[in-house]
Simulated scan of single mutants.
Amino acid sequence: MAREVGSSSMPHLTAFPEALGTGIIINTAKPVGSGLRARMGHLIEAYESTLSRFRDDSIPAAMAESDRGGSFDFPEYCQGLFDLYDCLYLATGGALDPAVGADLVRLGYGRDMTFRMSADAVDHLGRIRGRATWGDDVERVGTTLRTTGSVQLDFGALGKGYLVDLLAGILEHAQGTYRVGDYLIDAGGDMRIHAPKAVSIAMEDPDDLTKAVGLVSMVSGSLCASAPSRRRWTAPRKDGAAGGLMVLHHIVNAIDGWPVRRVEATWVVVGRDGNDGEQGAGASICNQGQCSPERSGRDWTPDRVPRKGQNPGKGKDGRLADLYPTALADGLSTALFLVDANDLAEHFSFACATIDDNRRAVVSRGFPGTIFTG
């Protein structure tokens, strides 16, 4: 939902128009050589063919079609992605769950893109009606997932942001003539920025995508936005109420399986450094102009994968937020639709802004922007 306004100090453009369904645009201070571009292109193709539930050749597709389950080996680069899902699954009490893919299919957002809700959806949506869950029905050993039945995974809550971080790693580790200097990666509103001066980013109005509701200014860090504006469809109401149709979208509470209603849009910033202003620990959240007390937020990087109520601890390899700031921001921008920001702030360090269904804007301490509505 965020749109770049300017990056004149990074004039060289590299685009992957078909990537992830939204396209990926990379601005760099120096040109991206053909070899480096090819390496990123190969990563994008491998990533999508591995993780996208919309592709017949992906691992999630095989898991969904395996009625007896099985053991499914993912690439080693998925370790951080699965760690983050573990953390966010626990932090949201299971409301953010990659096993929500089955709910999305029943709601009409499946591989066939029918956008027609299945006749039995009401009886099967969500964990409360017996849908498989990440915490109880998927056993993880490193990057191997084991199941005893069909599980339909959807990695959309973190997937774009995680790929952005992997691409940033390629750029940052390029050596010699391949070095590109400063960069800005934009994957349909999921951004990672390392710029010599502030970049201005417009915040799209969830009710009118041609307008902005605010402006963010950042030198470094990750910014991700979420809103159901671009993926909405309708289905007949099941309760016989007047009006006949209900609006559905892709941001679903995995507990009951229904699209969330009370939030219109979210923006999350993770990983801003000291040269770009202070983000603050734990993102003290403002509510109707009053800020709650500071909370001692921390990032989770488990030594062992936390499952089924275990408490995650600090890992040996540094914080997940340091390694994958865009993925974390991506996941938190979805989590803010599901749980209160102050609850998330007890576990993660971030800054955020939200707009609810009454057009009320809430902005956290340390958020590097201004909202014009609310």
Results as ranks from 00 to 15, higher is better:
residue 40 M to H: 01
residue 372 F to M: 04
residue 113 M to R: 13
residue 87 C to Q: 05
residue 122 V to C: 02
residue 373 T to P: 00
residue 31 P to W: 04
residue 284 S to V: 09
residue 206 P to H: 04
residue 256 D to M: 03
residue 304 R to T: 15
residue 17 P to H: 09
residue 105 V to W: 09
residue 103 D to K: 03
residue 198 A to T: 04
residue 193 I to G: 07
residue 171 L to F: 12
residue 318 G to S: 07
residue 81 L to Q: 04
residue 284 S to Y: 01
residue 351 A to N: 14
residue 223 L to M: 09
residue 18 E to W: 01
residue 15 A to P: 01
residue 118 S to E: 15
residue 341 A to M: 07
residue 205 D to M: 02
residue 285 I to F: 06
residue 315 G to P: 06
residue 120 D to I: 04
residue 131 R to C: 13
residue 204 E to T: 09
residue 231 R to P: 09
residue 166 L to E: 14
residue 17 P to F: 06
residue 180 V to G: 09
residue 6 G to L: 11
residue 85 Y to Q: 02
residue 151 V to G: 10
residue 191 M to K: 10
residue 235 A to K: 07
residue 342 N to T: 15
residue 303 D to Q: 13
residue 172 E to C: 10
residue 163 L to N: 09
residue 139 E to M: 07
residue 169 G to R: 05
residue 329 A to M: 08
residue 116 R to G: 01
residue 300 W to L: 11
residue 341 A to C: 13
residue 220 S to Q: 07
residue 315 G to V: 01
residue 363 V to Y: 02
residue 350 F to Y: 15
residue 214 G to A: 05
residue 354 T to V: 15
residue 297 G to W: 11
residue 361 A to V: 15
residue 44 I to F: 12
residue 200 S to Q: 10
residue 247 V to W: 00
residue 117 M to Q: 06
residue 264 E to V: 00
residue 114 T to V: 03
residue 335 A to Y: 05
residue 109 Y to P: 03
residue 218 M to Y: 02
residue 6 G to Q: 13
residue 202 A to H: 12
residue 316 K to F: 14
residue 147 T to F: 08
residue 194 H to S: 14
residue 270 V to N: 08
residue 249 H to M: 02
residue 5 V to E: 10
residue 204 E to M: 01
residue 267 W to E: 11
residue 278 E to M: 10
residue 340 D to P: 01
residue 95 A to F: 00
residue 350 F to T: 08
residue 91 A to L: 09
residue 338 L to W: 11
residue 119 A to I: 12
residue 313 G to D: 14
residue 287 N to A: 05
residue 200 S to D: 14
residue 9 S to H: 13
residue 224 C to Y: 09
residue 221 G to Y: 04
residue 113 M to I: 10
residue 306 P to Y: 04
residue 369 G to I: 03
residue 322 D to P: 10
residue 212 A to E: 14
residue 3 R to P: 05
residue 28 T to G: 01
residue 56 D to C: 01
